[in-house]
Write a protein that binds this DNA or RNA. Structure first.
Lengths: 124, 124
DNA sequence: TTTGGATATGCATGGTATGACATATCGTCA
DNA sequence: TGACGATATGTCATACCATGCATATCCAAA
Protein backbone atom coordinates (compact mmCIF):
# COMPACT_ATOMS: atom_id res chain seq x y z
CA UNK A 1 0.00 0.00 0.00
CA UNK A 2 1.34 3.36 -1.02
CA UNK A 3 0.05 6.38 0.89
CA UNK A 4 0.69 10.07 0.92
CA UNK A 5 2.33 9.64 4.30
CA UNK A 6 5.22 7.63 3.00
CA UNK A 7 7.68 10.36 2.21
CA UNK A 8 7.15 12.13 5.53
CA UNK A 9 7.44 9.15 7.82
CA UNK A 10 11.19 9.28 8.18
CA UNK A 11 10.94 12.87 9.40
CA UNK A 12 8.83 11.87 12.39
CA UNK A 13 10.56 11.65 15.74
CA UNK A 14 8.99 9.84 18.62
CA UNK A 15 9.03 11.21 22.14
CA UNK A 16 7.48 10.13 25.35
CA UNK A 17 7.50 10.99 28.99
CA UNK A 18 6.52 8.90 31.96
CA UNK A 19 6.03 10.45 35.32
CA UNK A 20 4.33 9.90 38.61
CA UNK A 21 2.40 12.35 40.67
CA UNK A 22 0.48 12.57 43.87
CA UNK A 23 -3.29 12.98 43.95
CA UNK A 24 -2.97 16.65 43.20
CA UNK A 25 -0.92 15.93 40.10
CA UNK A 26 2.15 17.50 41.61
CA UNK A 27 5.07 15.82 39.90
CA UNK A 28 6.96 13.33 42.01
CA UNK A 29 9.24 11.30 39.83
CA UNK A 30 9.88 11.53 36.13
CA UNK A 31 12.72 11.22 33.71
CA UNK A 32 14.46 14.34 34.92
CA UNK A 33 14.51 13.49 38.61
CA UNK A 34 15.35 9.91 37.84
CA UNK A 35 18.40 10.94 35.83
CA UNK A 36 19.58 13.40 38.39
CA UNK A 37 19.17 10.95 41.26
CA UNK A 38 21.29 8.43 39.42
CA UNK A 39 23.97 10.95 38.61
CA UNK A 40 24.07 12.40 42.11
CA UNK A 41 24.80 9.00 43.52
CA UNK A 42 27.40 8.33 40.89
CA UNK A 43 29.19 11.62 41.45
CA UNK A 44 28.55 11.94 45.17
CA UNK A 45 27.53 15.53 44.58
CA UNK A 46 24.36 17.39 43.78
CA UNK A 47 26.23 20.30 42.29
CA UNK A 48 28.41 18.18 40.07
CA UNK A 49 25.37 16.30 38.80
CA UNK A 50 23.53 19.52 38.00
CA UNK A 51 26.52 20.90 36.17
CA UNK A 52 26.84 17.82 34.03
CA UNK A 53 23.17 17.69 33.07
CA UNK A 54 22.91 21.43 32.62
CA UNK A 55 20.24 21.76 35.30
CA UNK A 56 20.26 24.68 37.65
CA UNK A 57 21.12 23.85 41.22
CA UNK A 58 18.25 25.95 42.48
CA UNK A 59 15.64 24.13 40.53
CA UNK A 60 16.97 20.68 41.15
CA UNK A 61 17.12 21.30 44.83
CA UNK A 62 13.42 22.20 44.79
CA UNK A 63 12.57 19.09 42.82
CA UNK A 64 14.36 16.85 45.26
CA UNK A 65 12.63 18.53 48.16
CA UNK A 66 9.25 17.74 46.61
CA UNK A 67 9.95 14.07 46.09
CA UNK A 68 11.25 13.64 49.62
CA UNK A 69 8.28 15.51 50.99
CA UNK A 70 5.96 13.15 49.20
CA UNK A 71 7.54 10.00 50.52
CA UNK A 72 8.12 11.39 53.97
CA UNK A 73 11.57 9.93 54.35
CA UNK A 74 14.93 10.82 52.82
CA UNK A 75 16.11 9.46 49.51
CA UNK A 76 19.38 11.33 49.80
CA UNK A 77 22.08 11.56 52.40
CA UNK A 78 23.20 15.13 52.28
CA UNK A 79 26.28 16.40 54.06
CA UNK A 80 27.37 19.98 54.37
CA UNK A 81 30.81 21.28 55.17
CA UNK A 82 34.18 19.69 55.05
CA UNK A 83 37.07 20.47 52.85
CA UNK A 84 35.10 19.36 49.82
CA UNK A 85 32.19 21.56 50.84
CA UNK A 86 29.78 18.70 51.15
CA UNK A 87 28.49 15.61 49.44
CA UNK A 88 25.28 13.84 48.60
CA UNK A 89 24.55 10.19 47.98
CA UNK A 90 21.44 8.05 47.79
CA UNK A 91 20.01 6.29 50.81
CA UNK A 92 18.98 2.65 50.56
CA UNK A 93 15.48 3.79 49.70
CA UNK A 94 16.79 6.15 47.06
CA UNK A 95 18.70 3.34 45.41
CA UNK A 96 15.69 1.09 45.55
CA UNK A 97 13.51 3.71 43.89
CA UNK A 98 16.02 4.38 41.15
CA UNK A 99 16.47 0.69 40.45
CA UNK A 100 12.74 0.11 40.20
CA UNK A 101 12.41 3.00 37.80
CA UNK A 102 15.37 1.70 35.80
CA UNK A 103 13.61 -1.56 35.17
CA UNK A 104 10.29 0.08 34.42
CA UNK A 105 11.86 2.44 31.96
CA UNK A 106 13.83 -0.23 30.18
CA UNK A 107 10.78 -2.38 29.57
CA UNK A 108 8.75 0.58 28.36
CA UNK A 109 11.53 1.77 26.07
CA UNK A 110 11.57 -1.47 24.16
CA UNK A 111 7.81 -1.75 23.86
CA UNK A 112 7.25 1.80 22.73
CA UNK A 113 9.87 1.51 20.07
CA UNK A 114 8.19 -1.61 18.76
CA UNK A 115 4.77 0.02 18.81
CA UNK A 116 6.08 3.02 16.96
CA UNK A 117 7.50 0.84 14.23
CA UNK A 118 4.09 -0.74 13.78
CA UNK A 119 2.56 2.71 13.66
CA UNK A 120 4.88 3.68 10.84
CA UNK A 121 4.17 0.45 8.99
CA UNK A 122 0.46 1.13 9.24
CA UNK A 123 0.92 4.45 7.51
CA UNK A 124 2.99 3.16 4.64
CA UNK B 1 9.81 -7.61 51.72
CA UNK B 2 8.49 -4.70 53.69
CA UNK B 3 9.81 -1.29 52.77
CA UNK B 4 9.22 2.28 53.78
CA UNK B 5 7.58 2.85 50.42
CA UNK B 6 4.66 0.58 51.07
CA UNK B 7 2.22 3.01 52.60
CA UNK B 8 2.79 5.65 49.94
CA UNK B 9 2.48 3.46 46.89
CA UNK B 10 -1.27 3.73 46.56
CA UNK B 11 -0.98 7.51 46.43
CA UNK B 12 1.14 7.40 43.29
CA UNK B 13 -0.56 8.16 40.01
CA UNK B 14 1.03 7.23 36.74
CA UNK B 15 1.00 9.55 33.76
CA UNK B 16 2.55 9.44 30.37
CA UNK B 17 2.55 11.29 27.12
CA UNK B 18 3.50 10.13 23.69
CA UNK B 19 4.01 12.57 20.91
CA UNK B 20 5.70 12.98 17.61
CA UNK B 21 7.66 15.88 16.32
CA UNK B 22 9.58 16.99 13.30
CA UNK B 23 13.34 17.38 13.32
CA UNK B 24 13.07 20.69 15.09
CA UNK B 25 11.02 19.13 17.86
CA UNK B 26 7.94 21.08 16.88
CA UNK B 27 5.01 19.00 18.08
CA UNK B 28 3.10 17.25 15.35
CA UNK B 29 0.80 14.70 16.86
CA UNK B 30 0.16 13.88 20.48
CA UNK B 31 -2.66 12.91 22.74
CA UNK B 32 -4.39 16.26 22.48
CA UNK B 33 -4.44 16.50 18.69
CA UNK B 34 -5.32 12.86 18.41
CA UNK B 35 -8.36 13.29 20.65
CA UNK B 36 -9.54 16.39 18.90
CA UNK B 37 -9.16 14.87 15.45
CA UNK B 38 -11.30 11.95 16.49
CA UNK B 39 -13.96 14.14 18.00
CA UNK B 40 -14.05 16.55 15.08
CA UNK B 41 -14.80 13.71 12.74
CA UNK B 42 -17.41 12.33 15.07
CA UNK B 43 -19.16 15.66 15.48
CA UNK B 44 -18.51 17.03 12.02
CA UNK B 45 -17.45 20.28 13.60
CA UNK B 46 -14.27 21.81 14.89
CA UNK B 47 -16.10 24.19 17.16
CA UNK B 48 -18.31 21.51 18.69
CA UNK B 49 -15.29 19.30 19.35
CA UNK B 50 -13.42 22.15 21.04
CA UNK B 51 -16.39 22.98 23.21
CA UNK B 52 -16.75 19.40 24.37
CA UNK B 53 -13.09 18.96 25.23
CA UNK B 54 -12.78 22.40 26.77
CA UNK B 55 -10.11 23.47 24.30
CA UNK B 56 -10.11 26.96 22.89
CA UNK B 57 -10.98 27.19 19.24
CA UNK B 58 -8.10 29.58 18.68
CA UNK B 59 -5.51 27.22 19.97
CA UNK B 60 -6.86 24.11 18.37
CA UNK B 61 -7.00 25.79 15.03
CA UNK B 62 -3.30 26.61 15.32
CA UNK B 63 -2.47 23.04 16.28
CA UNK B 64 -4.27 21.62 13.31
CA UNK B 65 -2.54 24.02 11.00
CA UNK B 66 0.82 22.80 12.24
CA UNK B 67 0.11 19.15 11.68
CA UNK B 68 -1.22 19.76 8.18
CA UNK B 69 1.75 21.92 7.38
CA UNK B 70 4.07 19.13 8.41
CA UNK B 71 2.45 16.50 6.25
CA UNK B 72 1.88 18.85 3.36
CA UNK B 73 -1.60 17.58 2.57
CA UNK B 74 -4.94 18.04 4.33
CA UNK B 75 -6.12 15.78 7.11
CA UNK B 76 -9.37 17.69 7.39
CA UNK B 77 -12.04 18.68 4.97
CA UNK B 78 -13.11 22.09 6.12
CA UNK B 79 -16.18 23.86 4.80
CA UNK B 80 -17.18 27.39 5.55
CA UNK B 81 -20.60 28.91 5.13
CA UNK B 82 -24.02 27.42 4.78
CA UNK B 83 -26.89 27.56 7.15
CA UNK B 84 -24.95 25.61 9.72
CA UNK B 85 -22.01 27.96 9.39
CA UNK B 86 -19.66 25.26 8.23
CA UNK B 87 -18.41 21.79 8.98
CA UNK B 88 -15.22 19.81 9.26
CA UNK B 89 -14.55 16.12 8.81
CA UNK B 90 -11.45 13.98 8.37
CA UNK B 91 -10.05 13.16 4.97
CA UNK B 92 -9.06 9.60 4.16
CA UNK B 93 -5.54 10.41 5.28
CA UNK B 94 -6.84 11.90 8.49
CA UNK B 95 -8.76 8.76 9.28
CA UNK B 96 -5.78 6.62 8.49
CA UNK B 97 -3.56 8.63 10.81
CA UNK B 98 -6.07 8.51 13.64
CA UNK B 99 -6.55 4.78 13.25
CA UNK B 100 -2.83 4.12 13.31
CA UNK B 101 -2.46 6.20 16.45
CA UNK B 102 -5.43 4.41 18.00
CA UNK B 103 -3.69 1.09 17.65
CA UNK B 104 -0.37 2.43 18.81
CA UNK B 105 -1.89 4.00 21.86
CA UNK B 106 -3.90 0.94 22.80
CA UNK B 107 -0.88 -1.32 22.76
CA UNK B 108 1.20 1.12 24.76
CA UNK B 109 -1.57 1.66 27.29
CA UNK B 110 -1.72 -1.98 28.20
CA UNK B 111 2.01 -2.39 28.39
CA UNK B 112 2.69 0.67 30.50
CA UNK B 113 0.07 -0.33 32.99
CA UNK B 114 1.69 -3.70 33.34
CA UNK B 115 5.14 -2.18 33.75
CA UNK B 116 3.85 0.19 36.38
CA UNK B 117 2.40 -2.66 38.39
CA UNK B 118 5.78 -4.36 38.36
CA UNK B 119 7.36 -1.09 39.46
CA UNK B 120 5.02 -0.94 42.43
CA UNK B 121 5.69 -4.57 43.27
CA UNK B 122 9.41 -3.89 43.23
CA UNK B 123 8.97 -1.20 45.84
CA UNK B 124 6.87 -3.25 48.23
C1' DT C 1 -30.24 38.77 -1.05
C1' DT C 2 -30.02 38.68 3.70
C1' DT C 3 -28.92 36.07 7.73
C1' DG C 4 -26.54 32.99 10.74
C1' DG C 5 -23.07 30.34 12.54
C1' DA C 6 -18.66 28.10 11.78
C1' DT C 7 -14.18 28.58 9.77
C1' DA C 8 -10.02 31.52 9.78
C1' DT C 9 -6.55 34.74 11.72
C1' DG C 10 -4.23 38.85 14.08
C1' DC C 11 -3.17 40.97 18.39
C1' DA C 12 -2.98 42.34 23.24
C1' DT C 13 -2.33 40.74 27.72
C1' DG C 14 -1.72 38.35 31.83
C1' DG C 15 -0.17 34.40 34.53
C1' DT C 16 3.28 31.00 35.28
C1' DA C 17 7.38 28.54 34.85
C1' DT C 18 12.30 29.27 34.71
C1' DG C 19 16.60 31.26 35.43
C1' DA C 20 19.58 34.56 37.54
C1' DC C 21 21.24 36.60 41.60
C1' DA C 22 22.16 36.94 46.41
C1' DT C 23 23.28 35.08 50.67
C1' DA C 24 23.34 32.12 54.71
C1' DT C 25 24.98 27.79 56.73
C1' DC C 26 27.85 24.05 57.61
C1' DG C 27 32.01 21.08 58.89
C1' DT C 28 36.42 19.10 57.74
C1' DC C 29 41.09 19.55 56.95
C1' DA C 30 45.27 22.12 56.33
C1' DT D 1 40.90 28.25 63.62
C1' DG D 2 40.21 30.01 59.30
C1' DA D 3 39.27 29.08 54.54
C1' DC D 4 36.87 26.68 51.12
C1' DG D 5 33.27 24.77 48.49
C1' DA D 6 28.91 22.43 48.57
C1' DT D 7 24.42 22.40 50.65
C1' DA D 8 20.29 25.26 51.52
C1' DT D 9 16.86 28.94 50.66
C1' DG D 10 14.67 33.53 49.53
C1' DT D 11 13.57 36.74 45.90
C1' DC D 12 13.21 39.13 41.66
C1' DA D 13 13.24 39.65 36.73
C1' DT D 14 11.69 37.87 32.53
C1' DA D 15 10.59 35.09 28.81
C1' DC D 16 7.21 32.28 27.19
C1' DC D 17 2.77 30.62 26.13
C1' DA D 18 -2.07 30.13 26.90
C1' DT D 19 -6.17 32.68 26.90
C1' DG D 20 -9.23 35.91 25.54
C1' DC D 21 -10.86 39.46 22.45
C1' DA D 22 -11.78 41.19 18.05
C1' DT D 23 -12.81 40.72 13.43
C1' DA D 24 -12.89 39.06 8.72
C1' DT D 25 -14.55 35.52 5.58
C1' DC D 26 -17.44 32.23 3.66
C1' DC D 27 -21.80 30.06 1.66
C1' DA D 28 -26.23 27.38 1.90
C1' DA D 29 -30.78 27.94 3.04
C1' DA D 30 -34.79 30.66 3.71
Amino acid sequence: METKFREKLSAINLHYKIWMSDKKDAGILGDGKWQILKLIDQKGSLKAACDELGYTYRRTWGDLKKIEKFFGFPLLEKHRGGHEGGKTVLTEEGKRLVNAFDQFHASVDAMIQKGFESFIENLK
